[in-house]
């Protein structure tokens, strides 16, 4: 489990990332009709017995959507849940298709940027003591 940055500089950088992509996030979140059609184009969804938590829109709404709504002020547990969604459940292969043209990979990439600034990132062969890279 990564330790999260709570210093002001990190939070300022997170605010900058959100501010830079604010219009795209706002427009995408409000245009999304929650149709879940994007799920059919996600290989992680189809290869995980159609587990609904692999739905691309679910991953975007529950990562950058939450970060945007709370302006990055989420608890460590919430960031860990987001980490699981945007790294373990998404490989950013860019194959997700939204019938409305919402760029889901851009939203997930933005959530990854925020998480990295928070000190939360992909870990491999994770043990109780932490990531073993």
């Amino acid at each position: 489990m990564n330790s999260s940055n709570t210093d002001k500089a990190a939070m300022d950088r997170i605010q900058k990332i959100i501010e830079k992509k604010k219009d795209m996030i706002k427009l995408s979140l409000s245009a999304c009709v929650h149709c879940s059609i994007c799920s059919d184009s996600c290989f992680k969804f189809t290869s995980n017995r159609k587990d609904p938590t692999y739905t691309p829109s679910y991953k975007a709404i529950n990562s950058i959507g939450r970060i945007y709504k709370k302006k990055g002020n989420l608890s460590d547990e919430e960031y860990q849940a987001i980490k699981n969604l945007i790294w373990d459940k998404c490989v950013l292969c860019m194959r997700c298709y939204c019938p409305l043209g919402i760029s889901i990979p851009s939203l997930i990439a933005c959530a990854r940027n925020v998480c990295r600034e928070k000190g939360i990132y992909r870990t491999y062969d994770e043990t109780d003591e932490g990531g073993q890279i």
Partner: peptide, 15 residues
């Protein structure tokens, strides 16, 4: 929206 799990999971009162 009611019966398909991956549609229901992201459905809110707004939808």
């Amino acid at each position: 929206r009611i019966f398909i799990p991956h549609v229901r999971i992201i459905s809110t009162a707004r939808d």
